[in-house]
């Protein structure tokens, strides 16, 4: 099976398949010597990529993968290359570009809504200020775009994962 994986503005075409009992791996068409050992917990595994050792942890979250490797956390978008091709042909853009829901990272209170429906926003611009753990935190836009919908109002309390703003 061939995947397209994207993270941090980089793109990898990764082919994974069983060769007998072993897993064969190619990254961007380059075959890699690969060994994979899964622990009792299926989220945790040891990978040897051309004998480089990576002790990793993977989980799914909102259609993405969270990967922890060497003490760092990465958000990976990975999908079947065929789906990716269909998207491109249909002009739907990449999976990464479609992240449009800005969600509450923790339960808390909306202190201020900084952008209204229809306003243009650029990546990193503040959308909503939330108070949680006695601190005010600014939630920023994940990308350039337009505010499609604001789902919360000032002084409203929200749950973790609740959608606050939808980008168009």
């Amino acid at each position: 099976m061939t995947y397209v994986a994207r993270l941090l503005g980089r793109e990898y075409v990764i082919t994974v398949d069983y060769i007998g009992e072993r897993i064969g791996l190619e990254i961007n068409g380059r075959p890699i010597e690969f060994k994979h050992t899964q622990g009792r917990n299926r989220h945790r595994c040891l990978m040897l990529l051309d004998s480089n050792s990576y002790d990793v942890e993977v989980s799914r979250q909102n259609g993405r993968f969270l990967v922890t490797a060497h003490g760092r956390e990465f958000e990976v978008f990975a999908e079947d290359q065929r789906l990716d091709t269909i998207r491109k042909v249909a002009g739907l853009g990449y999976a990464t570009d479609q992240q449009s829901d800005v969600r509450a990272p923790m339960p808390g209170l909306v202190v201020r809504v900084l952008k209204q429906t229809g306003e243009r926003v650029s990546k990193g611009e503040g959308l909503v200020i939330m108070e949680a753990m006695k601190m005010e935190n600014e939630l920023k836009s994940p990308r350039d775009g337009e505010v499609g919908e604001v789902l919360v109002t000032t002084r409203q309390s929200v749950e973790k994962g609740e959608c606050l703003v939808r980008l168009k």
Binding site: M1, R10, A69, A78
Partner: peptide
């Protein structure tokens, strides 16, 4: 290298 490994880990997990 770590970024690449993270990409591989996600694909392997899904696979």
């Amino acid at each position: 290298d770590i970024v690449e490994a993270a990409a591989v880990a996600a694909c392997i997990f899904d696979f």
